[in-house]
Amino acid sequence: MEDVVIAILRSGTPLVYVTLAGVIAQRAGVWHLGLEGLMITGACATIVGIVLTGSVVFALLVAVLICIAGSVLFWFVVEKLKANQIIAGLGLTGLGLGGTSLAIQSIFGSQAAISAPFGLPRLGAAFGAYGVLSVLVLVMPVVVFLCWVLLCRTRFGLRLAASGEHPFAARSVGVDPSAMRLAALVIGGALCALAGAELAAGSLQIFSQNMTAGRGFMGFAAVIFGAGHPLWATLAALFFAVVGALGIRAQLVFGDRVPHDLLLGLPYIATIFGVWLSARLRGGAKSATGGFGELRDS
């Protein structure tokens, strides 16, 4: 049992971080399809940073700063150059996936997986069997709680949501929706960096190409499933992690009797099911305005 819980926390924690980034963006009116790109950038920067400097703190700092820079670029393209959010987001994802490959090629001269001598600090013996988990797992519930407070219990959160749902209402009380989106994307960039760091250095201490394997998109699906609410979206992310862990379990139980690929695909199937279910239950996500932000300006 313990090992299942550990597996869920390991795969679920990066997913929760990236989902929170998506939730904040969604509430501010941005359909954030660049999550995948930011997440892998965070993963790459963390491992490369540890390898090159030998300092985890420094590596994390670099990862966070690079992801924030990527988010600012995304904001600039969407808000200032008025590009379509979906296209720009997919572009950011492409930039992250390709850019990280290019980075390790140019730094290490090969595209093979990079392993670091050590990863993020572990919880240690005091936590028994759970001691193998990284500190970011323990911090995760705190971050979720802080996000919830920020989004649902402060005026900042209300202004963020108004900027996404009804930009004109925000402008009417003197809030600049564009600035709110910048704030949302910067916070989201930092969270994506943590998601990538936990994925690459939380248990594996390895960076390899495309290692995020669609987790950014899964996080985005969790945003939709959770209707843009930080707590519901977190639960959705953990649900996907549970399905993934059960898939691995099922492999051990069924062996060759069930196709291996089908079981590996379970989280993705669950994602599609989840999005369909949320559409059925709620008639869609909390509205991000999808590039038509000012449409309601009469």
Partner: peptide, 23 residues
Amino acid sequence: ALPPSFTVAEAMQFGAAGGALYT
């Protein structure tokens, strides 16, 4: 200019001043 998903209280709060954190 009121966001439809807000409660009345939230719609008041978001344009007001004072009371940073609330229940």
